[in-house]
Amino acid sequence: MFSDQFLLAPLHHINLLLRSYIMSDYNFAYLDEQTKRMIRRAILKGLAIPGYQVPFASREMPMPYGWGTGGVQVSAAVMTQSDVFKVIDQGADDTTNAVSIRRFFERTADVETTEATAEATVIQTRHRIPEEPLNADQILVYQVPIPEPLRFLEPSEVETRKMHALEDYGLMHVKLYEDISAHGAIATAYAYPVEVEGRYVMDPSPIPKFDNPKLSMPAIQLFGAGREQRIYALPPYTQVVSLDFEDYPFEATKADHPCGLCGSTDSYLDELIVDDAGGRMFMCSDTDYCGARRAKGHVGAEGTPLQEDAV
């Protein structure tokens, strides 16, 4: 992660940064150093109190709210010149959101970027955790639209903060109860609420609940909500439990198919409508994972070997 020097930000350090990035009109990674210090303080506080939403002075970014302004600010604050950066949007490296954020940091920070999960040191993600397990040298940055898990149950921020402070979480189970009474099962499929270290109830951002068991991992996980001005974090190996009932236990679900392209049976799948007759296929949402498998020679039922595909 970042060093102490960064936190203290001695003047010569800033000068060095300015000099080394003279080719860009922007300060390294767009944000000014004071803003990055402010964000780092919020991140450190978040790491010290896992699951607690730390307010921070979110900046206007050159992209609309909802496009990952929170994640971008967190990425900018933790990024160093030697980082290798990867961005995924719903698991894919090649969607508009991912491409534009990747290009943003190529231009403003001149960092190396990659699509390979294993090579990246900072991964910004919208709504997925990569299939490939992350390691202790990596940071996963989530884009969060609404950080408050209780928001749709209790509209008042004053009240929800009090509920967090007093661990008054009965209402969260009311939501799950309502799910079961209406649908016969816990129908919440994404943004599935979790309890962190037996204390704070947290919204893991709109990742599918398939990804919830992966939330206890060796990598640092940082969550940034730009519009809502909140940062929260999970330190490595934090205990994260998905809320459930004794007789309706939590289940990490996915479409019951293999990937049509690479044949993987254990990855999270997107459903794709392929023709006007309602034909559909399922494929890995993690494009890097799927591509790597195909490069190794795995071929799904509707896939072609990688070489032919490339022509």
Partner: peptide
């Protein structure tokens, strides 16, 4: 009352707030 929560959820809320975690019993 919570007007956007079903009658059962309304009655069950206090039970869940004090730690009831068995859907069948709550219902």
């Amino acid at each position: 009352l919570r007007m956007n929560v079903s009658a059962g959820g309304n009655v069950g809320e206090r039970l869940m707030a004090v730690g009831a975690r068995h859907y069948g019993d709550i219902r």
